[in-house]
């Protein structure tokens, strides 16, 4: 059961949410992309409901609202430390169905993986989710095959239908926002088909490391890490301890997002580093997204949003890579050597 809102009523709803929450949504940064006069759509706090980009997929995912690219954890002086203030208060984030499934991935990594991550939890506890329905799939999406095309666990779903919005509220505390609005018996749409189809072979196992399918990426990939930074499910971080330059006795510890594709990710004490070939890094990332994570949590990590395809400067397609796995397994066989 939902409500039909006019554009003005939808904007009123967002404004009313803004009184109680910091509202984060995909926003267009004019000229903010890599090339001259090319816009980028990424997450920011919304000052005006009209800023919310509803008709395009964001280039960078909602993840930054839960996992800031760079987050100060605490400050230190000679004797004392002080925890950094939480970067934001109660928040609402607009995201898509695939990203709603990514929230589950982030939760499993940061909350249900032996111990709770304190800094993740303090942001996670203060967030509500509004799904922007996808009546049609975008070009590079493969959510249907990854099983993430129907949203789960959100507080609200909105669907733009011409000049109107279908709004399905799933958070009882928000019912007051809808007093006086006409109810409609309509379910929100979701993408039922993608142009991109993927097939993960049932017999996939670590033998795939011996396959030749990774070799092309040794030279195609430039190890820039864009695929990781835009990915709604990449959760790796690294630590930075810095000393303020003025007196060198005070500083801060930050954690920043890390990429398994970028040099330095595997550096260990003593000067070792691993997966030097970029194809090996592709294999590691691939296996984490469609194999290793599933071994531990029972479902695939990749949610099929296709952002890695969209952002890759070398036109490497992750979905095309998935579809090479079957051939790779035929090449190497299932039996452990």
């Amino acid at each position: 059961m939902g409500y039909t809102l006019s554009k003005e009523q939808f904007e009123t709803l967002v404004n009313r949410l803004s009184e109680q929450y910091q509202v984060f949504a995909p926003v267009k940064f004019v000229g903010g992309n890599t090339f001259t006069d090319v816009d980028v759509i990424r997450y920011d706090q919304v000052k005006n409901p009209e800023e919310i980009v509803l008709d395009q997929k964001s280039d960078y995912s909602f993840k930054e609202v839960l996992l800031p690219l760079s987050e100060t954890l605490f400050y230190y002086t000679e004797e004392q430390t002080k925890e950094a203030d939480i970067p934001r208060g109660e928040a609402v984030v607009f995201l898509r169905s695939c990203e709603m499934h990514a929230v589950k991935v982030l939760d499993d990594i940061y909350l249900n993986n032996k111990f709770e991550d304190y800094y993740y939890k303090r942001l996670r506890d203060k967030i509500k989710f509004i799904v922007i329905a996808c009546p049609e799939s975008f070009d590079s999406c493969f959510c249907v095959d990854m099983g993430t095309n129907k949203p789960e666990g959100q507080d609200m779903i909105i669907e733009q239908q011409g000049d109107q919005f279908l709004v399905v509220n799933e958070n009882p505390q928000w019912e007051a926002y809808f007093e006086g609005y006409a109810k409609v018996d309509q379910a929100p749409s979701y993408a039922k088909e993608n142009k991109v189809k993927v097939h993960i072979p049932e017999n996939l196992n670590p033998n795939i490391a011996k396959s030749s399918i990774w070799e092309e990426y040794d030279t195609r990939c430039i190890a820039c890490g864009r695929c990781n930074f835009v990915c709604p499910t990449c959760t790796c971080f690294t630590m930075q301890d810095i000393l303020y330059s003025d007196n060198g006795k005070a500083g801060e510890r930050r954690r920043v997002q890390a990429s398994c594709m970028v040099d330095g990710f595997t550096d260990v004490a003593g000067g070792g580093s691993y997966r030097k070939k970029f194809g090996e890094r592709m294999r590691f990332k691939m296996m984490h997204k469609v194999y290793d994570f599933r071994k531990r949590f029972g479902y695939n990590m990749c949610v099929g949003c296709g952002r890695c395809d969209d952002v890759c400067p070398e036109y490497i397609s992750f979905s095309a890579n998935i579809n090479k796995l079957e051939e790779g397994m035929k090449e190497v066989g299932e039996e452990h050597a």
Binding site: P68, S70, C224, F229, T238, V256, S259
Partner: peptide, 10 residues
């Protein structure tokens, strides 16, 4: 924007 920098070194 230093808040978006992860020191990837690129």
């Amino acid at each position: 924007d230093p808040s978006r920098c992860v020191d990837c070194g690129a």
